[in-house]
Design a binder for these strands. Structure first.
Length: 110
DNA sequence: AAGTTGACGACGA
DNA sequence: CTCGTCGCCAACT
């Protein structure tokens, strides 16, 4: 046990206007293949107020769907409010909004 | 208490 | 390149 605690800390570190993926979180937690566990843990959402689950998307950048805050539209609005552009298909441009743990510039290719 | 599913991901064919 | 299977940890039944 303890993975959920790490996930808790990591997700908590995601800055506003950025998103992260389950795989990335799992990798940062030390279990690169345990993306499922991360999803499970986030689904449990021990502290919904402290854990911005809305900033966590799948590997393709699509929103989880089963959002626990009130609905996908709420998540989309929240992300948009933070500066994250969410597509009508509830997809986020990971190339632009994927959170990078390393402060390696923002790779402003755009 | 044990088995199965699940907000996913990576590797293999 | 796409499709399929295995793996992973935790939670639910």
């Amino acid at each position: 046990m303890g993975l959920h605690k790490r996930v808790y800390e990591i997700v908590r570190r995601i800055p506003a206007g950025r998103v992260s993926t389950y795989g990335q979180i799992a990798a940062l937690a030390g279990m690169p293949r345990a993306a499922r566990a991360v999803g499970s843990i986030l689904h449990a959402n021990p502290e919904p107020v402290v854990i911005p689950c809305h900033r966590v998307v799948n590997r393709e950048g699509f929103l989880s769907g089963a959002f626990a805050f009130g609905g996908p539209e709420a998540q989309k609005a929240m992300l948009a409010s933070e500066g994250v552009e969410v597509s009508e298909e509830y997809k986020v441009d990971l190339d632009r909004f994927l959170w990078k743990n390393n402060s390696e510039g923002e790779s402003e290719g755009w």
